[in-house]
Design a binder for these strands. Structure first.
Lengths: 346, 346
DNA sequence: TGACACGTTGCACACGCTTGCATTACTGCG
DNA sequence: CGCAGTAATGCAAGCGTGTGCAACGTGTCA
């Protein structure tokens, strides 16, 4: 039922955006317009008394500096563009939260562009960033076209690529150092007495996800073990369920599975338990990646690797606030192993 | 380990933001600056051939309309400000996703301000919106000061308040019609044979959450039943666990609980199962609210009410895109009952 | 008293764009 | 051929701000 009740109260006929300008504040305060400008510019040369008068008048009139005009003059909008897809996902939303928080602390404001399922839209997003003369763009998903990256840089825009570990030379690339993770998982599985390893991947095929698969295969082979690989669908909970159905109906049923992501792992666990009546970790050991909040919930208690979300956000913002920044840089953070009960302990 | 490798490659010394302007495009295309402007303004009077020439030159030079300047002239920035807290939460992130999506479809762009845990910051957020001359603000959390709301409206800014069902007269208020939900829950519990009802609330005390509690108590009393109420902490998973500990250790242990939110419900279920070894729904029936993705996961299968996220987003954006809009309006959507297995069926 | 330094202040230009208005080119019609 | 009507175009004003530059007032010192 959609009931619409209009409350006709104190209303004025949308007098089309009459903002109060510095001009009016100046008149009210009895100073020049530049004095008003200076009053709102930290570090400007202005007498304390004058500033007080200006602030007073501004408050009374409800004046707010027009950041569009300021950005136009200063060539610095204060806007940072976040390019992201799948923002309903726990990991992504947590990262967005951390980034916006850090940006606000630094006096910037986040403009967010949703690029669900289409690399072409990443280019649209960067164009949007250019149009608003964003001071920087932070790309969390998709891989922008090389030419566009160049364009952004040429326009003096800072660029941060998070977990886009392609060979792109975006000025700052933040990636995870996953050299040791595969090793750690294999070791954990071996200690738990597991021998039939599996890797559950999505079909997304992004470089970071594929690298995780390749690394795991290599680490297992080093121990003389084969790995059954299965790939299906998007990187989501439901895919985990399908992957479990496929892997758990094999003749040689795996007794340990490394899931490319926590979401996949949780779906996998649910299917293993409720459709195949398996006990975890008795019958099956599971490891995920990301350490989303749900991984620590009692029903799952998933062993996983923790994304250094806060570190990522801090590093990204710190870098783009830094005045004198060099050429293309690459930052590698590591994701600590979080040991929980989805893997048998020795 | 944080290894920084500098790749000194094609780099030019940050020549401080040399954007290409319409002037240059005009020169290259052999037309006037106004022609360039018109080429990028849909519906402007310009010859197709001229537009083609302009577009060609623009593409070649990498020109992008400066939306700061355009916004300054048109008094319409194209920016919509989302004021939100707890954006790491499943419900909130889903709503943000839907809203940004709708805004983009409408040709707007979302600027997002995080206001975690502080109503005062909501005012800061609205001020930010004013500074950037946002066309509208959508408030998902916190309650802005009345004077600020007035200020926004006076400045010609559209305002949408979602689930802020206080008496605030923001031009558009979108709320849930929860008149029937409490009734439905009580009926479901009674049919399941439950008699000792409980309500698990957080201490957030926002109007919508409190209304849910009050409604449930009233509906239960109508059936001659008392309800045990417990409140604790923020509206989160962990609070659900604590609430379960408190409620399940009472002498008269409840056999049915309505949780103020899915997150609380999931925490409640986990504690009930893993700490009190209760079976759901045999020993305890649980109902939540929101229908976050996790509610449908096999481990929970939670009966709940589905937030009409898409409807909310569509309604909000449609309203703020509408040219001639009347005075303060109120929209009430309903949240359909989603029947799953956390409540015994008759 | 004059020279000088210094902290304030106002003027005026610039930022990149939109748009009303006047001008021009073009078409069709009497 | 002339005239009106229309579409396209250029000119220039203006949006609200920052800031270099010059002017001003004040106080200090010679």
């Amino acid at each position: 039922m959609q009931e619409i009740c209009k409350a006709v109260q104190d209303w004025f006929p949308m007098s089309d955006k009459i903002f109060v300008s510095a001009e009016e504040v100046a008149r009210k305060a009895g100073v020049s317009r530049s004095a008003v400008s200076r009053a709102f510019t930290s570090g400007a040369s202005i007498a304390p008394e004058t500033r007080r008068k200006v602030m007073e008048a501004a408050e009374a009139l409800g004046y707010h500096v027009n950041h569009l005009a300021r950005g136009l003059m200063r060539n610095e909008s204060g806007i940072v563009c976040l390019v992201v897809s799948d923002m309903g996902t726990p990991y992504r939303s947590a990262l967005i939260k951390a980034l916006t928080q850090q940006l606000q602390n630094a006096g910037k404001v986040a403009m967010i562009v949703n690029t669900d399922r289409s690399d072409e839209r990443v280019d649209m997003a960067l164009r949007q960033a250019i149009r608003y003369r964003a001071d920087a763009s932070i790309v969390l998903s998709g891989m922008p076209d090389k030419s566009l990256v160049d364009l952004c840089v040429r326009n003096g825009q800072r660029l941060v690529l998070i977990n886009r570990d392609d060979e792109h030379q975006g000025p700052l690339r933040i990636n995870l150092d996953e050299d040791d993770t595969a090793q750690a998982v294999v070791t954990a599985f071996l200690r738990a007495g597991c021998r039939r390893l599996a890797f559950a991947n999505s079909e997304a095929g992004t470089p970071s996800l594929m690298a995780r698969e390749v690394g795991f295969l290599a680490a297992a082979r080093e121990q003389g073990l084969d790995v059954t690989v299965e790939r299906f669908g998007p990187t989501a909970y439901e895919s985990g369920k399908v992957l479990a159905q496929r892997l758990m109906t094999r003749r040689e049923r795996p007794d340990a599975v490394f899931c490319v992501t926590d979401l996949v792992a949780l779906g996998f666990m649910d299917a293993a338990r409720h459709q195949f009546s398996l006990s975890i970790p008795q019958d099956l050991c599971v490891v995920g990646f990301d350490d989303i909040p749900q991984a620590s919930w009692n029903s799952y208690d998933l062993t996983t690797f923790a994304q250094p979300i806060e570190e990522i956000a801090v590093a990204a913002v710190a870098w783009l606030m830094n005045e004198d920044v060099g050429p293309s840089q690459s930052l590698r953070l590591n994701a600590p192993f979080v040991w929980r009960r989805s893997v048998r302990s020795a």
